[in-house]
Design a protein around this nucleic acid. Sequence first.
DNA 1: GATGAATGAGATTTCATTCAT
DNA 2: AATGAATGAAATCTCATTCAT
Lengths: 194, 194, 194, 194
Amino acid sequence: MTNGPDRREQILAAAVRVFAERGFEATRISDIAAEAGVAYGLVYHYFGSRDAIRDAVFRETWGRMLEAVGTAEQSAGSAPERLELVVKIVLRAWRDDPDVVRLIVREVARSPRLADELDQVGAALATLERIVAGGQREGTIRTSLDPALCARMLYGALEEILTGWVLGRLPDDAEAVRRAEREVTRTVVGGLLV
Amino acid sequence: MTNGPDRREQILAAAVRVFAERGFEATRISDIAAEAGVAYGLVYHYFGSRDAIRDAVFRETWGRMLEAVGTAEQSAGSAPERLELVVKIVLRAWRDDPDVVRLIVREVARSPRLADELDQVGAALATLERIVAGGQREGTIRTSLDPALCARMLYGALEEILTGWVLGRLPDDAEAVRRAEREVTRTVVGGLLV
Amino acid sequence: MTNGPDRREQILAAAVRVFAERGFEATRISDIAAEAGVAYGLVYHYFGSRDAIRDAVFRETWGRMLEAVGTAEQSAGSAPERLELVVKIVLRAWRDDPDVVRLIVREVARSPRLADELDQVGAALATLERIVAGGQREGTIRTSLDPALCARMLYGALEEILTGWVLGRLPDDAEAVRRAEREVTRTVVGGLLV
Amino acid sequence: MTNGPDRREQILAAAVRVFAERGFEATRISDIAAEAGVAYGLVYHYFGSRDAIRDAVFRETWGRMLEAVGTAEQSAGSAPERLELVVKIVLRAWRDDPDVVRLIVREVARSPRLADELDQVGAALATLERIVAGGQREGTIRTSLDPALCARMLYGALEEILTGWVLGRLPDDAEAVRRAEREVTRTVVGGLLV
DNA sequence: GATGAATGAGATTTCATTCAT
DNA sequence: AATGAATGAAATCTCATTCAT
């Protein structure tokens, strides 16, 4: 017996880095093992198969993101203030944990299996939906809107900005990040108000 | 028999269907050949390699979409009216040509290689950017906004709604499509106005 | 297009030789490909999987044997004469086609999957059973006997003698083969008579 | 804790069960450890290798069978009576210890390596041979027969009946077992008599 | 142009065995 | 004695690509 959970974490962290670097489809088990500095078979000792690693990695990265978004839902303040907080949290993740964002942007959205089986995107959207519906009840958001549609508009806008950063198509210095926060809040969140 | 261009189109159309159905990575040359009803080697006769097929397919599908978005840029009217037209064109594509939309949503949008080499998404974003900048010049859109950021917000919002339809997460009957057009226009386009 | 069926036969014949030589479990696909003098992947082109090759080989080898035993069932003469013919055919197979006998003796009997799915042993036993039952009707074989049990006794006796030859435990020169025919006929077939 | 021999027996008994269930080739060390309820490495502590376990198991199971057949050779009575006793002992083993019989039928009988290295089948056949030769000396068995051949005929007949039971192809209730004893004795043993 | 047989590099996965604790 | 984490060689299988006809 050695250091079980540690090893597992070590491999998982390596997988996040490699997936973020080259994408899931282009990543070989040997890449992960090499990055983690362990033997080939140990990856299989902790994760049963290639797909299992992918699922674990996605669950893990999304877990962090969802937890953060969850705090916004629990925060004090009106619905628009909560949405503003979501915008801040999501966009700042790029600076705080770029590998996770890279992974989410590049892989999670496109994976049919994930969309069906893990559906963490769905969880994020559901959180946004609840916040919007709360805003309609408290009278801060137009009741003519469909919360599910609003959730997708905001989510899509945020994801596309992250994509711009990931692909180096948009400036991502600290000032640009603050500006993006401001503009998304004014435009999309502002567009929802009564 | 010498029906060259026809055969090529036949294979390309089959590739669109298969890619839309199962994704690019999961699609084998044999799947395309089978769907097209031609022999294995003929796919290689017209397209030199697997990647060449992918590029041709993506260029082709995006070609149609970009052409449509281009007509909006050329249309008469103010910038907000042009953006509204883009919204209409993009969202109605789902009803008109779902396989193409499926393909774009699942594969094109965030594929790193494509973004680099074909960068047709970039072309679409550039069109939106030009419309927004035009609106700022004509005084209909707030000048404090960054056109590149606006383009991405609108693009992302649209794409995420299409994703909802592709994955069956949002209702997509004719009435729902009209409603989505209205809400995106009011919320995101409306949020850009002075 | 090249010479399809020929290639398939070529691989199948190679597989028979290799299986007979080293046994199924110890045989690698690469062994078969090398013995057949073809590329690795071609084995998979004609047979879908390792198990499929095994099944095809067993079906093929047993096919030849069963066909031979079938002729005995069709032959003129009394049941004991037919059984004597079966004894002759089976024991002479060792001289005529040792690889096939080796394979049957070493592999077929022990394979649970085969016993269940291909069950060619079952077909051979059924033929013997029918001959014995016919003998009971014509009054040449004791009616107190269970034909299924008789079939197994004769089959087992023959197989065990073949095993002795395959493993080099019994002399197998022409004279020894003739003697074995005589003794099995006198002892086991003779033991069944009224 | 120092219950060495007990542990060893525990693992050996588990191996017999697992081998009988799924065959030697399909059995993993982990299967044996799990069935025995001990840790992975402990199997290696008591047995040095996978092959060593197999050999130990086969020696063990055959040991019991050979011991039983040996008592027949030592028994009072004529050679035919001794052979009748062998038939009884072998066929009744199915009811008494089916896992052992299953193992012998499926794995031991024709395994080339075993036949060469352990050759316990050879020992059983030798015992039968000695009984037959004794019968020829005492004048109860035809002297024209080759004892080695007779031994194989009887052995094969018995084994094939056991196979029928193992595979569920023959009825194996108490009455059917008694009948099989009677018929083998009359047919094969009877066929040897002067 | 058209076919599909042939090739082989490379990926996933298994599992006997070792070894530190 | 007992545990199970760690290792890596070896096997199966896939599939893009080539090529003879």
